[in-house]
């Protein structure tokens, strides 16, 4: 079992629908349209050859500059039999961050999705209890999004230039 086989099986099944592959640091990363996330995971889970039946991690990333695909949801899957990992990434627009829940497939996705919702506001459609988990229930924003700066905005010694990036974030 190698990244090549996974790539090949996925291409056979989903063909042109997949947005791209990446293999940096030895881990296969697949980008796909958001509406396909569950179909792909189900295929990876059920396929007799692929057997990606362990959800290692689930999180989101906010890219304010990518219009129409501001939020990225990253799944880390693991085939424990052949000991191979992969990453699945889907992108959703921040105005409508809807993506299907993976709780039917993995019980462990429950809290991971709640955490992702809590910090990024990703709406996992079909989740049994999509409520805040680490932050207080009364919170009315999603704190990990990039528009919420860490530092006091009046401080000039902690602007983005000090962190190797030009200009200010969003």
């Amino acid at each position: 079992m190698t990244n090549e086989i996974v790539k090949q099986r996925l291409s056979e099944k989903f063909g042109e629908q997949l947005a791209g592959f990446d293999e940096s640091f030895g881990m296969l990363a697949v980008s796909a349209p958001a509406e396909l996330n569950l179909k792909i995971m189900q295929f990876l889970h059920d396929d007799e050859q692929l057997k990606f039946r362990f959800l290692t991690d689930l999180t989101a990333i906010h890219y304010p500059d990518r219009k129409g695909e501001e939020l990225c949801i990253a799944y880390h899957l693991h085939n424990l039999v052949d000991n191979i990992r992969m990453r699945l990434k889907v992108y959703v627009p921040i105005e409508r961050p809807d993506v299907s829940t993976a709780t039917q497939l993995f019980s462990g996705a429950n809290w991971m999705e709640r955490e992702t919702y809590d910090f990024y506001g990703v709406n996992f459609v079909g989740h049994p209890n999509l409520t805040r988990i680490l932050n207080v229930d009364e919170m009315d924003y999603f704190p990990m999004r990039k528009e919420y700066a860490m530092e006091d905005p009046t401080r000039v010694d902690k602007d983005d230039e000090m962190f190797g990036r030009g200009g200010t974030v969003a």
Binding site: L134, N135, M150
Partner: peptide, 15 residues
Amino acid sequence: TIGYIHRAFEKIAER
């Protein structure tokens, strides 16, 4: 119920 000692490490780490 969890989150009583949440300290936002992932957010802090970005800065």
